[in-house]
Nucleic acid binder design. Structure first.
Length: 291
DNA sequence: CACTTGACCTGTCCGC
DNA sequence: TGCGGACAGGTCAAGT
């Protein structure tokens, strides 16, 4: 599921809802999802208070007042859903995919002293939570390898182009998806932004003009900002911090629209494979770049 | 170095 | 209705 916009939606929602809550208890059924849940958790998570909820690329970082932080990655099917006191017995909104929680995909439950709960659901069990000292978050083996934040104010087209150019012989889609180059882009927003910028995903970076890469940066920022406004993309599993689906895919131009008409030229959208991923393009609008 | 494949898991969909 | 295969928003390891 979650790419940068979806994770950002969860982050901002949790940041409103769980700051200051005090952890009473924690439950986990699947050690791979929470590998150190047997060790430091009792000392550093139980009785701690939530200080802040941050994000780095597609990772969420929940800071505690014990100088520990909980790094969470939702991978393909992870969900982080909060149920406050007011939710009890009320179920989820009609725009939800969820029934009562916990359900059979629930891997971790964090209970707070006021009765609220935070559920980490993950059908495919690829996601994880890890408790690390806050001072070591930046040096975490996963976090430290990430490239810059695409949507940060001090990033920008020139930096974007420079980072893309660092992989001159690769296909542009593979570079967009490489979290070490820039952080946060996944399959949906790479397809959408490449369509908008009229670039074929298999184009080799060194063959793509400055102008097109500039367009790509602006397209990427636009599609991700728009998605955040629309509640993110729910392909199958994504729900936000209160269980609601996102509506962005109703507005997507090519993603999962093979067989439909390209909104720009009317020709049929095709599905191909690029960088090992299902890839949606208009072959007419998006030609392979040739230098 | 860059690309491909397979692995990690479960669920769903499609064709026979 | 059942069964097998392909595929799914992400990342990592290993092979060519």
């Amino acid at each position: 599921m979650p790419e940068l916009p979806e994770v950002e939606i969860v982050r901002s929602g949790l940041n409103r809802l769980i700051i200051g809550l005090e952890v009473e208890n924690i439950w986990s059924d699947w050690p791979k999802n929470f590998p150190n849940s047997e060790g430091d958790v009792n000392n550093f998570l139980i009785n701690s208070k939530i200080n802040a909820v941050g994000r780095r690329g597609k990772s969420l970082i929940i800071d505690l007042n014990t100088n520990y932080s909980l790094i969470t990655h939702l991978k393909m099917t992870g969900q982080l859903v909060f149920e406050g006191k007011e939710h009890f017995g009320a179920g989820h909104p009609s725009s939800s995919l969820l029934g009562p929680l916990p359900d059979k995909s629930t891997r971790v439950v964090i209970s707070f002293k006021d009765g609220a709960k935070l559920f980490f659901n993950d059908q495919r069990k690829f996601g994880w939570m890890k408790l690390v000292p806050t001072s070591e978050v930046k040096n975490n083996e996963f976090i430290k390898g990430l490239g810059p934040e695409v949507l940060s104010d001090d990033f920008g087209s020139q930096n974007f182009i420079r980072h893309m150019r660092s992989r001159p012989n690769s296909q542009i889609k593979a570079v967009l998806l490489d979290q070490k180059v820039i952080a946060g882009v996944g399959n949906i927003y790479s397809d959408e932004s490449l369509w908008m910028a009229k670039i074929h995903p298999a184009s080799i970076v060194k063959d793509i003009s400055e102008k097109k890469l500039d367009n790509l940066f602006n397209s990427l920022v636009e599609v991700m900002r728009e998605s955040i406004k629309k509640g993110g993309s729910t392909d199958r599993n994504f729900v936000d911090f209160e269980g609601k689906k996102g509506s962005y895919l109703n507005f997507a131009k090519v993603f999962r629209r093979e067989g439909q008409a390209c909104p720009r030229c009317g020709r049929e959208i095709k599905k191909i494979r690029v960088a090992g991923r299902g890839t949606h393009i208009c072959e007419y609008c998006q030609r392979i770049s040739v230098k």
